[in-house]
Design a protein around this nucleic acid. Structure first.
Length: 327
DNA sequence: GACTCGTGGAG
DNA sequence: TCTCCAAGAGT
């Protein structure tokens, strides 16, 4: 009896979110137009751990290259990485390629519409599967991204909440009859109203039932402390006849699959630039070398090719100097 | 279950 | 400048 009452109240919360979304949601996000499973899939992968604003340009560029799954079929891993250049978390791009190959081989070229099949695809976990099922197929599955987590922990005042509890809450408040709008709504609510700092509680449609709001206090969240390591890298620049020599990286433990310059085996700690990764601070320097010293396995690239080549940010920046001079 | 993967926005 | 943190998944 008690749980029935609870469910009733919670699904009304879901309807309030859906209602709020229809007038106050973000209505300028490209993946919300012309919704297809393919477009939802691409956007959801790009949006993992990445703010919507950052994704917009990458999504539009990707879609203009591959408007439909049919167009995407023949893309190579390198093609996908090129379109991912600068977006970060490049494993997503490689997994997107692998997933595409699996869809062709195992699912007859159609993105699955069942949870069990979706999560077998590389790069699609529980939350992304839930988003695809909800938004593309209108099936009531929960999602639990950073926005939903924040909204739920505050709404129900869950201090140091555990994942399972939040997944249960996410399932319970679902507006099953309007899952697509509801899911986008709860994410918008987290992104624009229930923000990490300076939340706009006065504008929140849930403020009357929000425990945190009534307490005038936010639940504590456990913050992971990251021990950042300093890494010193000297890149070797080989140039001849308007060409630059690069190697496909698989040795650093990050930037896998991207093209970089050969790395010098120097013990001298020099720093031209500091590039910050999520878990390391890279102290980077560059050294001009003559091609006689070249020993690495790699390829010479015309300078004209470099702008499209998948390279990590600091390498792209360095190479852009050559591109500028070349033009 | 802790750790790792990138880059940029925002305060 | 510095810190937090983002439509998470894989190992």
């Amino acid at each position: 009896m008690n749980s029935m009452k609870k469910n009733c109240k919670e699904s009304s919360t879901g309807r309030q979110i859906t209602k709020w979304y229809k007038t106050k949601g973000r209505n300028n996000l490209p993946w919300r137009e012309n919704i297809t499973p393919y477009r939802v899939w691409i956007s959801e992968i790009m949006l993992q751990q990445t703010q919507a604003k950052t994704v917009v340009n990458y999504f539009e560029k990707f879609i203009s290259n591959y408007p439909t799954f049919e167009d995407f079929k023949s893309a190579s891993e390198e093609d996908v990485l090129s379109l991912w250049k600068g977006l970060g978390f490049y494993r997503r791009a490689r997994n997107l390629y692998r997933a595409k190959e699996m869809i062709l081989k195992k699912f007859n070229g159609k993105l699955p519409n069942s949870f069990e099949n979706l999560i077998t695809l590389p790069g699609i976990g529980k939350s992304t599967a839930g988003a695809i099922l909800s938004i593309a197929y209108k099936l009531p599955y929960p999602i639990l991204d950073a926005n939903v987590k924040r909204v739920l922990t505050r709404l129900f005042f869950k201090t140091n909440s555990n994942e399972k509890e939040l997944w249960d809450l996410s399932s319970q408040i679902l507006d099953k009859k309007n899952v697509d709008d509801f899911q986008q709504g709860i994410m918008d609510l987290g992104a624009t109203v229930c923000t990490p700092k300076n939340a706009l509680c006065g504008e929140c449609p849930l403020n009357k039932q929000c425990i945190s709001f009534s307490k005038g206090e936010l639940p504590t969240v456990n913050v992971k402390k990251i021990n950042k390591k300093n890494v010193y890298l000297e890149f070797e620049i080989y140039e001849k006849n308007q060409k630059i020599f690069l190697i496909k990286n698989n040795q650093l433990g990050f930037w896998d699959g991207l093209w970089i310059m050969p790395i010098a085996k120097t013990k001298q700690l020099k720093t031209e630039i500091i590039h910050k990764l999520s878990h390391r601070n890279l102290h980077i320097s560059f050294a001009n070398r003559s091609k006689d010293e070249l020993k690495s396995e790699g390829k010479w690239f015309d300078i004209a090719q470099l702008s499209k080549l998948p390279t990590p940010k600091p390498i792209s920046d360095k190479l852009s100097v050559y591109v500028q001079n070349f033009l």
